[in-house]
């Protein structure tokens, strides 16, 4: 390792000149390694949010519990300023001996990922045609079977849309990590802002927006391929 990336970006470099230079991508401080940092953290956050929220919201919606409190809870969590939460958690994490990473940024991003997944799962299951549910019950399905084989099956596309929204939001917000003692793709925006290097800020923003766009596209194709025609029609009524 000869060069540290932070020092290796000259101020007068062109945005695309820098982006298309293979040297920018290589090495322990290169774009590829920052990209990997970002993707891994975002993936873990989205997976954790999905495996906790989908069962919880399904169960609540299936049993028709907490209809009023749910919407307020979701509004509340949407209103939480992510940066403040993460900023508050960093000194606490440091003093507790857990270091800069990963807890503060993980918790902040998780708070961001939970609501859309929860809300979409809840509404999707709630809005499953009562006729279909009654028909299943009449056919002798147990409540568990109703939930898994009817409600969840019919709600899949809407749930996936919720996961997509969560994933895109998480990817677009993860860059604040660079301002909290971490790295990831946000480092270019941070360094560009700190070093008054506009080209680097723009290049960093392009990389992040690109990754977010790619995330959205991959989810959309999964949503399209994974589902039978009948369910796909339901997707058009999805809440975002």
């Amino acid at each position: 390792m000869t060069v540290i990336a932070q020092a290796a970006v000259p101020r007068d470099v062109g945005v695309f000149e820098w982006l298309f230079d293979p040297d920018s991508w290589a090495g322990t401080d290169g774009i590829l390694s920052s990209l990997a940092d970002t993707v891994i953290l975002c993936a873990i956050v989205v997976v954790v949010a999905t495996i906790t929220m989908v069962p919880l919201a399904s169960w609540l919606a299936h049993t028709r519990r907490g209809e009023v409190s749910v919407s307020w809870l979701v509004t509340l969590s949407r209103a939480i300023p992510t940066f403040a939460v993460a900023g508050l958690l960093v000194p606490i994490s440091l003093r507790s001996g857990w270091g800069f990473e990963p807890w503060p940024i993980f918790i902040a991003l998780l708070l961001l990922a939970l609501p859309p997944i929860f809300l979409n799962t809840y509404t999707a299951i709630q809005q499953v045609d009562p006729g279909a549910v009654d028909a299943a019950r009449a056919m002798g399905y147990s409540e568990t079977e109703v939930l898994f084989r009817v409600e969840l099956a019919l709600a899949t596309s809407v749930i996936l849309a919720g996961v997509r929204v969560a994933a895109v939001t998480v990817v677009a917000t993860e860059p604040i990590r660079a301002f909290l003692g971490g790295d990831g793709l946000g480092r270019y925006v941070r360094d560009g802002l700190g070093q008054n290097n506009d080209g680097l800020v723009i290049a960093g923003a392009i990389l992040i927006a690109g990754l977010a766009g790619l995330t959205a596209l991959s989810f959309r194709s999964v949503e399209r391929f994974a589902l039978p025609d009948g369910v796909r029609r339901l997707a058009t009524t999805a809440t975002r």
């Binding site: 677009a172 946000g186 802002l193 723009i202 923003a205 992040i208 959205a216």
Partner: peptide, 18 residues
């Protein structure tokens, strides 16, 4: 509009300041 939504706010502010 989806593209605009994915640009991190800190970066967008930074781009517009100049």
């Amino acid at each position: 509009t989806a593209f605009l939504y994915t640009i991190p706010s800190v970066a967008l502010f930074g781009i517009l300041v100049p």
